[in-house]
Amino acid sequence: MPNIASVLKAEIARLARKEPRLETNGLRKAVTGYRSEIAALKRRIEQLERQTRRTSKAAISVGKPMEDDAGSPKHRFSAKGFAMHRARLGLSAAEYGRLLGVSGLSVYKWEGGQVHPRASYLPAIATVRKMGKREAASKLEALQA
């Protein structure tokens, strides 16, 4: 017959392993549920962010009026059109820059699309874009004098 003390010790050890397992099973199930809820919320957030980006792009592409709130016209800039106009006038980048009040390097970089001109230069660019060859040449002479 086995020793009662060893049997009792074995039973206590078995129950000691079994009890915490029973108590933690409920917690494990709760944690699993929370993780799945968090994953679902993350997917929903990503979906809403994509939808927001799509609608904001659509709103931009619909078009904005070419005038801001102050009533002054907004000017657009195209590097290709800028370069073509300078070529039509037959001016160097430095001469074109003098007309605008900037350096020739700025004109070169604007034409290449490396940089966009600041908003403060856009009205001057629009003014020069309206000039013809003769008018641009006379304006350059006046600036040199």
Rank of each mutant, 00 (worst) to 15 (best):
I38C: 15
K139I: 00
P2R: 02
Y108Q: 15
V107R: 01
E46K: 11
K133Y: 11
R86M: 11
A124V: 07
K130R: 10
R88D: 15
G112N: 13
K133L: 12
G81M: 10
A39R: 12
A119K: 09
T52A: 08
R17K: 15
A145H: 01
A58L: 08
S103C: 00
T32D: 11
G81K: 15
R17A: 15
K109G: 02
A124S: 11
R44I: 01
A30N: 11
A87N: 07
E67H: 13
R50M: 01
I4C: 04
T24H: 09
R134Y: 07
A137D: 11
G26M: 09
L100M: 13
T127Y: 06
G90P: 11
M131Y: 06
S56V: 12
T52I: 13
G101T: 01
K139F: 02
G113R: 03
P73H: 03
L41G: 06
E135M: 11
P123L: 05
R88E: 15
R118Y: 04
Q51D: 15
H75L: 04
E49F: 09
A13Y: 03
L89C: 13
F82C: 04
L8F: 06
G81P: 06
A145R: 03
P65A: 11
A124F: 07
A93I: 00
L89Y: 08
K133S: 09
K74S: 02
R43L: 15
A93P: 00
L8N: 13
A40S: 14
A39W: 00
A70F: 07
L140V: 05
R17F: 11
I60S: 10
L99G: 02
V128R: 03
S56K: 07
E11G: 06
M84T: 09
Y96L: 05
L89G: 04
L27V: 10
L22E: 15
E135D: 14
E135S: 14
P2S: 04
P20W: 07
K57N: 14
P117W: 00
Q144Y: 05
K64W: 05
V31Y: 13
P117V: 02
G63F: 06
R35N: 10
